[in-house]
Simulated assay, not measured.
Amino acid sequence: MSSAPYTYEPVGATRDDLAVCPPGFHHLYVRTRIGEGTGLFHRAAQALLTWEMHREMGVAMDTTADRAAPGVDVTVGLAGLIKAPCRVVWTADEPRRAGWAYGTLPGHPECGEEAFVVSRTGDGTVWLTVAAYSRPAKWYAHAAGPAARALQHAYARRCGKVLKRLCADEDES
């Protein structure tokens, strides 16, 4: 675990409210239906908590642990060009909700927090929610403007597609 400070406030705000968006930040909220059933939920939670979903997407996850846990440092590598240092802020591993969020550290092109949460509703439907609040921290993120936010939304939608594919054998629907 590094001692680098987070580059934003409030740290951990996505834990209780995925719709949170502090003033001055851009909000992201993408929810994807993954399927149905307890087995699918457990498979999706495992893929999420062990970085499998991200790695399956081709995202380099250089991390200090095999599983998401508070305080674990993660450097996200995108296209071999961008290295984005983060730290896991919180995790959840509950009967109907599993996931984690990381917060940005110095050197990340954005500042803010991003959460990845799998939940199972009362009717057994399993959802992936990707939620974030962020703003540019590097000149190139600022210059990208709306294009950067569009890429963030596309990334969140792709998370849902990849997780759905990873869990296809477990779907009870």
Rank of each mutant, 00 (worst) to 15 (best):
L49Q: 10
A84Q: 12
V11Q: 08
A131T: 04
R67F: 06
A101V: 01
A150C: 05
C86P: 00
G37I: 06
G112L: 04
G160E: 10
G112C: 06
D73G: 04
E52Y: 01
A101Q: 02
W51K: 01
R43S: 12
M57W: 07
A143R: 13
D123K: 01
A137I: 01
A150Y: 08
E170I: 00
K164C: 07
R33H: 15
R87T: 05
A168E: 13
V126A: 07
C111P: 00
D17I: 07
H26P: 00
E52D: 15
C167H: 01
C86F: 03
C159S: 14
V59A: 05
G99S: 07
A150W: 15
D171T: 03
A132F: 05
A132Q: 01
A101R: 02
P70Q: 07
V117S: 02
E170F: 12
S134T: 14
A68M: 12
G99L: 05
L128F: 10
T75C: 10
R158K: 15
S134R: 04
G12A: 05
M53I: 01
L81G: 01
L128M: 07
S2H: 03
T32W: 06
Y155E: 10
R33E: 14
E9D: 13
L18D: 04
T50F: 04
Y102E: 04
L151R: 13
V76F: 01
G107V: 09
V59F: 12
R31Y: 02
R120E: 15
A13N: 02
M1E: 10
R43Y: 00
Q152Y: 07
L18Q: 11
L28W: 05
V20D: 08
D17N: 15
C167E: 03
L128H: 02
G39R: 14
S3W: 02
V89C: 05
V162H: 03
V59L: 15
L105E: 08
Q152E: 12
P10E: 12
C86A: 13
V89H: 02
G107E: 11
C159P: 05
G99R: 07
Y8L: 11
V59H: 09
A84P: 01
K164P: 00
P109E: 02
Q152D: 10
E94G: 02
E110W: 10
L166S: 02
T75D: 10
C159V: 08
G145H: 12
S119N: 04
A47H: 15
V88W: 06
W139R: 14
E52F: 02
Q152L: 08
T104A: 05
G112Q: 02
M53P: 00
K164Y: 00
A19R: 15
E170D: 14
R43V: 13
E94I: 01
T38D: 13
R157F: 09
A4K: 14
Y8T: 11
R15W: 07
Q46I: 00
E9G: 06
Y140H: 14
H142Y: 09
R157A: 12
E113D: 08
C86N: 15
C86I: 01
R43I: 01
K164L: 02
P85W: 03
V11L: 10
L18T: 10
L166W: 09
C159Y: 12
T32N: 12
A60T: 14
E52H: 13
D169L: 09
R157N: 05
P10Q: 11
P146Q: 12
